[in-house]
Write a protein that binds this DNA or RNA. Structure first.
Lengths: 347, 347
DNA sequence: GTGAAAGCGCTAACAA
DNA sequence: TTGTTAGCGCTTTCAC
């Protein structure tokens, strides 16, 4: 059996209450007693039983983390950051992957609610009403999503899209395509809006290429409409989509960035590994993770009276090799590996 | 306050124990009573408090999962699998990332020990003695690693290396280089051994290129010795190393697979995204995750009398574009993008 | 400053 | 089959 508070008490010649106090409210106990108790506890290798403590304090010391898909390379770094900061605040993380199924999420939140003090919820596609239901179960922080009345950490998509467009406009592009993510995704809507607003301000045209799964293969599917759109630069919903698109373009003999520029979003490590390296918007998951934990801890300490705290994290453009001025490389000069088709420019 | 077992008992007109029994030992209660209790519980939205239950049963319903680095793309899929199967067995997963620091791992295991029923430990570099110390704290299953007396799920490295060598030998390669992982990594030693043993059997030569960080940049570092070795095919410690090597080779104008074949290990999604697609050994994380959970659950049910169960998971070669017969493409014919240097063949 | 006592929500004897 | 009782390890009144 593990060593309990009673063991420590007996060994130190005090009562259990004193041990408890020495550990959690040190000022309410005589320095000399405390010293002795701590020494004995250490010596015996005493570790408080969190379950027992939780039973009485009502706090578990756990926070729940719900995400759509850990296999999406955007998330591991976010998770690492959240874990790191949670541990610093003495919380454990209970993570659950919903496999992109919004239907199971509410159920998970409900099951989790009893076992955690609060939840960090990453659910791009849950319906707002379900989101609010979930949040009503306990302290909740949304990541990469907003909903009225729920604290949230978001990325400044508007500014990010402006940065992308400014970069492209600076290169001379006038017509930009957007290979969108899932129709129901909140950030997809935000990004599209940021793009159209920003384009209007800069006098650019935006072509919506449609909605695609937020994956490498999803990106491949965008190649057709990308070529037909007449756009000279394509922004992918995320890096996976952008890289998938690049790959499909290469297979058709379309050169990136010579014939077509491509921009991603997220700056996952993959972006720097592909050829050409992907110009992309860095979405700082480390900062976001930290902010999410901070927000939740605040909520748990009840320091947020009435307000609904929001953090908007800044992004920054990473210029790499996948963008260049339009027509940088004359179409007929490049060696065509399969040469099935050229980008069709229409008006 | 949340609804407790007492609330349900009162509402159903029975005692708390009956409710408890109806929920956890259904056969020991009258079907009609049980039915009613369950209905009431459902209606009230009752969720057992696991902490309270754990306090008396001594079981937390949690399993701990310790990994070196979630950012290594090999792990997310393993974690997903472990989560999935853990949930099916009604366990929650407490995950901790050690950031590749074996020093903190023992501490983590110790901290975790109190809060979980068992631990799945993925620690390629912990010293065997520390491993045993960790395992002595509670039921433990090792993944991708063996140690005397500790249950483990491993991959059949010997057979995997044989598959790789057979493939390369079939293409006509006679001299194979190995871009190794960290010196202290267990699986690195296993893979190297598998390679040298297998090569001896097939009459091939193996060149050790040295030890490199198990990352994309680590792989880049291997380019020099890969070219100097005179090998016509290089096996990377994992896919990241292999892809990093491919990238560095491309930058030197060395064609893969024309000038040099490259093989990875793991079959992470990246392997199918790069150009050329990477020939690699599929290491089935889904099966491994399942096996690890199964083993641990067995251990927890105490069905393993005396034995130290081991599971060896089979791998399978994924033949893609990064391997070809040696000299498939005459060195002087290929267009050199930067052309700084040719592969130097010695001996 | 310290101890005794009560009780968090639940399960496991033990009775009935 | 069901209810009563005790107690898991801890914190927190309430006395002293």
């Amino acid at each position: 059996m593990a060593v309990t508070i009673t063991d420590v008490a007996r060994a130190a010649g005090v009562s259990a209450s004193t041990v408890s106090r020495a550990l959690s409210v040190p000022d309410k106990v005589d320095p000399r007693t405390r010293e002795r108790v701590l020494r004995v506890a250490e010596h015996l290798g005493y570790q408080p039983n969190r379950a027992a403590r939780g039973l009485i304090t009502g706090r578990t010391g756990n926070i729940g983390l719900i995400l759509p898909d850990l296999a999406n390379p955007f998330f591991p770094s976010l998770v690492k950051s959240i874990q790191h900061h949670a541990h610093r605040a003495d919380y454990q993380v209970l993570m659950m992957d919903t496999d992109e199924d919004p239907a199971v999420e509410l159920g998970l939140v409900r099951a989790l609610a009893k076992q955690v003090d609060g939840v960090i919820l990453c659910s791009p596609r849950m319906r707002p009403q379900d989101l609010r239901d979930a949040a009503s179960l306990g302290p909740t922080v949304l990541v990469n999503r907003k909903a009225r009345g729920i604290p949230a950490v978001t990325f400044d998509n508007g500014d990010g899209m402006r940065q992308i467009l400014a970069h492209l406009a600076g290169l001379g592009h006038e017509h930009v395509g957007f290979a969108g993510g899932p129709r129901s995704s909140w950030s997809n809507a935000e990004r599209l809006r940021g793009l159209t607003d920003g384009a209007a301000a800069l006098g650019l045209r935006v072509a919506e290429l449609g909605h695609f799964p937020p994956t490498f293969d999803g990106g491949r599917l965008a190649v057709e409409s990308a070529l037909l759109s007449g756009a000279t630069a394509i922004v992918g919903y995320n890096d996976l989509v952008a890289v998938g698109l690049c790959r499909a373009l290469a297979e058709r003999g379309v050169d990136v960035p010579g014939d077509l520029s491509v921009v991603g979003i997220d700056d996952i490590t993959l972006a720097g590994m592909v050829q050409p390296a992907l110009t992309t918007l860095t979405v700082p998951t480390d900062i976001a993770g930290r902010a999410a934990v901070d927000l939740l801890v605040q909520l748990l300490s009840d320091l947020t009276t009435g307000r609904t705290p929001q953090v908007d994290v800044q992004t920054s453009l990473q210029e790499r090799a996948s963008t260049a001025p339009p027509g940088a490389r004359p179409a007929l000069t490049r060696p065509s590996t399969s040469g099935r088709r050229r980008p069709t420019r229409r008006s």
